[in-house]
Design a protein around this nucleic acid. Structure first.
Lengths: 217, 217
DNA sequence: GTCTATACCGAGATAGAC
DNA sequence: GTCTATCTCGGTATAGAC
């Protein structure tokens, strides 16, 4: 079925506002991109103002983002490092799909504080908090850390920074592919951070030894 | 000494363009903020156009950024993990000082491709490449990794993402302070990623054993 | 629902007095 | 070097015909 004029206007507005920002987007350009006669007020039969269509476009993207998130599949946790790597790639894919929201956040976060906190709330609360649960539940035995909140912040920051750097410059930093990036980050997270693991041959636990120098070992 | 009118115009333009973007900034507003009569063309005695002052402001920030980078002090590498943590905090501080450039990159990267690649070149080439040298030289014995480029990308992405999240939302993600963030990231990087370290008691090297199952060990 | 035509305003930029 | 005054253009939004 052909998209309605209203939907075409939303599409046009969303694309333009990402390219040239809110103030840089003109109603005339929206009309032209949506197949209406540029300069005619045809736009105003569907939206009351430019800010109106801007907010409507963001609401539509927020609903899409929540649908995407529900599609996340949780694979079996075989090798925890490989599972985490797959999970991180999924996260990068998710960020690519909600690119418009991230773009708008990066561009207009100073102009529309209410939308900023709304987007932030949905992305952070429903994304990060949920991910925190996953990390602590599924990877607990393999990922032992004394500050799980900070660990999660590092992971989320790395994903965010990698995504945005690609966005800004058009190519990944140092030309590192998403697969290499995810594998490296997963390897970091699934390694012991507070000391070496117990020895595979003799069972000596350096970490426990350091914590209890006069232990019964 | 009192700043010249030209400098005041540059200050005003830089601040406004970060708040409301290039198209959102009006020459009238720049004049008013710079202490000139708003609406008068006083601005045009100092710059030929709005784009002209925009580019001049960015050039000034780029020079400042290069000065900041030269001020980086390289402390003694005592404990490698603590040294890296200090270094990461320095990097966050640096990003805070070049905030205007990062803001403009996030905001106008689609509008001025030449400036985007110029800023990216200076920040990446002179920052990241230099940092790569530091990491591999000073931390080599303690940070052993099979893909140092990817490792550096993860570190830089994490710093970038943390900085930008603070910027966008006005507070750090999950309220994790820069100190906790740097300590956590440093701990991740200075841990073995490809396997446990040689055992402190019996000297068994699990990593070497895995690579050479029939070794002379 | 879409068009033509237009009112209105604000922004970029210039001319010329002081 | 800064001002007043002004030109011109483009953008938002509306009125009313079809």
């Amino acid at each position: 079925m052909a998209p309605s004029t209203r939907a075409r206007i939303l599409d046009a507005a969303l694309e333009l506002v990402q390219q040239v920002g809110f103030t840089g987007t003109t109603v005339t350009a929206i009309e032209e991109k949506a197949g209406l006669s540029p300069g005619s007020g045809g736009f105003y039969r569907h939206f009351r103002s430019k800010e109106d269509v801007f907010r409507a476009a963001i609401e539509r993207e927020l609903e899409r983002a929540q649908r995407y998130r529900r599609e996340f599949e949780r694979g079996a946790v075989d090798d925890p490092r490989a599972a985490l790597s797959r999970r991180l790639l999924q996260q990068l894919d998710y960020m690519a799909r909600i690119r418009p929201l991230i773009n708008l956040l990066a561009r207009e976060h100073g102009q529309f504080p209410d939308l900023t906190s709304r987007i932030g709330g949905i992305l952070l609360d429903q994304g990060i908090v949920e991910e925190a649960g996953h990390l602590t539940r599924d990877l607990r035995p393999h990922v032992d850390h004394d500050d799980p909140h900070a660990l999660l912040t590092v992971v989320v920051s790395a994903l965010t920074g990698y995504h945005l750097a690609r966005q800004f410059f058009g190519h990944p930093p140092a030309e590192v592919t998403p697969e290499r990036f995810a594998a490296t980050l997963a390897a970091l997270v699934t390694s012991p951070t507070t000391g070496p693991a117990p020895c595979a041959r003799c069972g000596h636990d350096e970490q426990a030894a350091a914590a209890d120098p006069h232990g019964a070992e």
